[in-house]
Design a protein around this nucleic acid. Structure first.
Lengths: 212, 212
DNA sequence: TCCGCATTAAAACAAACGTTTGATTTATCC
DNA sequence: GGATAAATCAAACGTTTGTTTTAATGCGGA
């Protein structure tokens, strides 16, 4: 049980608890308890609770963002070489597919995606800035690519439609099967492919909606 | 400054602070300080911090939900009497229009809508259940009406598309102009009518997207 | 005026929090 | 194998938290 490093165990425990209970509601004693480590280990390995959160975010978000960025850049290159605009669906898929595929890559990853979904709406400025700083280049990139895919859209429309899409995505990932309300005949936990298909299909039409 | 009742001032202060800082991050001392009331007044008037949150939610959400429910019910009646299915756009508008109009009805209302946007993704089960219990009838109603508007949609598709829509709405209300990233040429704070138009226009197309 | 009730006020409660210290153990290298 | 550094540990730090108690205050009716 105690095979990985203490540092890794702390990251795993923090990831799981921050996702399930929220950052402020999770005590360091709960983290070190779950990680079977000493309370002071957090200060030794990270320095503070906030630095621990930063490490949790960095560990997974940097590689994930790199994948998403590569897919978007590849799309941009293909569009420039072929001379045709990138398809809206392809842009959305380049962002969403790696996100949900990563979510299904393990229990820690699923918790992390849930944590990220919450970070977007985080009230605490320090935490939200921590997250937004990591997301800003990617946000501007997909905002830019949507402008290439939909040049007739006004900046304001494009900005808000992107936020609507991010809201839909983060809500879908945040819920993580914890529905209070579940009507009959509903699949509560579709896998990554099924959810990606539904989400991209939905957002593509919204993105391409004509402006009144 | 201290004109309204202590009870009202506590509700106003709690609403504002819970929305801005989050429930767990807001201390009762901050609430009573802002309300210019004694700390023990919370226990006297409400009983506990959680009961204060419940009162904050009830004060505004019950009347707002009643308006939304009435508009949805009116739509259902009109559809039954005319024999034609309700329009998807009309169903969405019946829910979203009162929500955003209410948001613009005052600073307290805006904070409240922000608070509600957060409550959907709240990690704490007690809080989320508190909120979901108030929202459940309305959720089932709009889920039902979307089924009337889009009978060819599978239950799972309808369920998830509704959640995508709620995610987009809650994200848009939660942000409340607090953007970290704001590209040039973007209107950061559209009024209720403009945001409603953009949102309904976006979601209508997503809702009506053909299934593969 | 005096009584009774609703409200407010000050103070303290135990518990939990993030943080820090200093000693102890474990591992690494010469 | 002994010295040096890394890592872990128990314990306490001072604050802050929600809650509770008890006394004081304000106020309307007999």
């Amino acid at each position: 049980m105690s095979q990985p490093d203490t540092k890794q165990r702390l990251l795993d425990a923090a990831e799981s608890l921050f996702a399930a209970e929220g950052f402020h509601s999770t005590s360091l004693r709960a983290v070190t308890g779950k990680a079977e480590a000493n309370l002071a280990a957090v200060k030794y390995h990270f320095g503070s609770k906030e630095a621990l959160l930063e490490a949790v975010l960095n560990r997974r978000l940097v590689p994930l963002n790199q994948v998403r960025q590569e897919r978007l850049e590849a799309l941009r290159m293909a569009a420039r070489q072929s001379g045709v605009r990138p398809a809206t669906e392809a842009v959305l898929r380049a962002f969403i597919e790696p996100t949900l595929a990563f979510r299904d890559s393990g229990p820690g990853a699923e918790a992390f995606i849930q944590l990220v979904g919450r970070a977007i709406a985080e009230p605490d400025d320090t935490i939200r800035n921590l997250f937004m700083q990591l997301m800003k280049p990617l946000f501007l990139l997909i905002y830019d690519m949507l402008g290439e895919a939909l040049p007739e859209l006004s900046d304001t429309e494009r900005f808000w439609r992107l936020h609507f899409s991010l809201g839909a995505l983060s809500h879908a990932t945040c819920l993580a099967g914890r529905f209070q309300i579940l009507p009959a005949g509903v699949t509560p936990r579709p896998d990554a492919d099924a959810l990606t298909a539904m989400l991209v299909n939905f957002l593509k039409m919204g993105m391409e909606a004509p402006c009144d």
